[in-house]
Design a protein around this nucleic acid. Structure first.
Lengths: 236, 236
DNA sequence: ACCGGGTTGTTCACTTTATCACAAAGGCTC
DNA sequence: GAGCCTTTGTGATAAAGTGAACAACCCGGT
């Protein structure tokens, strides 16, 4: 256990050595301003809400209406948007379609984001089969991987399943942007290492482990057990 | 759409009217102190890490070790624990098994937490089939519900599947603590309303909608599309 | 019994995030 | 085009959360 920790520290140190202190804010900044992470999450919510409003035929919307729909303060909506420019019209609000386009451009979902799912267990399958739904939001699952040879070769919901040993090649060939890790507990770090080596710098991790990755790689953790456990605190 | 919004506001107002301002902090406080939500989430992480350490044969552990294992500052670990009492021994650290027990008691996972899954789609099935894994952490999926009559009657991974029309009865009969909502988009609010009516006050929501619930009900949102979308921001 | 190393519990300072409040600004009506 | 109404963008303010520092404390060895 201690050995493992030392090992992880080594990895981090090694990375520091190769990349320098990395004071560059990569993409954490926009026009020189630093963007708080919560803002990015809300931006996604705005985009989705705007899609609904647009579908409902509204052509403009105020920060108050948008905030109310999401349970947020109107000032927060305005401030979040102000990080990226001035999109609104005083006295009128925001043009729904224009704002939606701007937000999608900021998030990078104006082009298709290419996703790979590693681990075709129940969770992996759930992700794959919801992909049609996600497609509307601008991303696409282009490949799945599993260690079980019996699953390899086929496809699920139009997504081909490869063996994990092909992960690195396919990441490059298929220009994968994001890797979703849904493998059994214990195998997460290995998959992450492979993905990072192949140039992936965004990982969605469903494995209940902390992943050690270079600083430029962003990891989103989704930990269902933790969500349930923390809910139970609020039961009488 | 506007009509919908007004409607939601009505529900909130109606609730306020029936419950008063509800200044009581319910279970947000512990011994009179208010507990920040992030603390609760970390508590779950501590519990899991301690389980591993215990399994590895360690009998005591310092805040630094625990923090390092989770990527957290040692002061934060101590402070989080201090909200609930004094569990440590200066110069020594914390006794692993004792601390784990205390945390589980605080979280309420020292007894079995009873869970229902509504919606036996891919995500619902993923939850159910992982239930053995969750069982170790102290909760148990005791029932599943679906609107599709063809799925009703059978069982998945030892969990019986009922028709959603039985939701309210079963919640009471089976003493459900938490309802996980994994139904198609659009049906989430209805399920939530039914659950709340039957006395459930903790909901795990996978549907990409904001749920309107009375103040005493706690909702955890898990929104996969948002996680992916916000990741895409950090791609070059 | 005393000393020293090591770790807790806690205070304080700092950083980050959210809310308030208002001047500046566009559109609509007359 | 003047006045009114509405809503934005933003500086000031408050709240929440995190990290550093240190006195108090406990254990084990001498």
């Amino acid at each position: 256990m201690v050995g493992l920790l030392v090992n992880q520290a080594d990895v981090v140190e090694a990375h520091k050595a190769t990349t320098g202190t990395q004071k560059t804010l990569d993409r954490l900044s926009f026009d020189g301003r630093r963007i708080p992470k919560p803002v990015i999450k809300r931006l996604s919510l705005y985009a989705r809400a705007l899609q609904k409003f647009s579908f409902a035929g509204m052509d403009k919307i105020s920060s108050r209406e948008l905030g109310d729909a999401l349970g947020l303060n109107s000032a927060q909506v305005r401030k979040d948007l102000a990080y990226f420019g001035q999109f609104g019209v005083p006295g009128l609000g925001y043009y729904v379609e224009e704002l939606r386009g701007r937000i999608k451009a900021i998030l990078g979902t104006d082009r298709v984001v290419r996703l790979a799912v590693v681990g075709v267990g129940n969770l992996g399958q759930a992700l794959i089969s919801n992909s049609a739904q996600y497609a509307r939001e601008g991303f696409c699952i282009v490949a799945a991987f599993d260690a079980d040879k019996r699953k390899v070769g086929g496809e699920r919901g139009g997504v081909p399943i490869y063996h994990v040993s092909d992960l690195q090649d396919k990441i490059r060939d298929l220009a994968i942007d994001i890797v979703a890790v849904a493998v059994p507990s214990g195998a997460g770090q290995l998959v992450a290492d492979r993905a990072v080596e192949s140039g992936v710098n965004a990982i969605l991790n469903f494995v209940p482990e902390r992943l050690i990755v270079p600083k430029h790689v962003h990891v989103q953790y989704v930990d269902l057990a933790i969500e349930i456990e923390s809910l139970s605190y609020w039961l009488k």
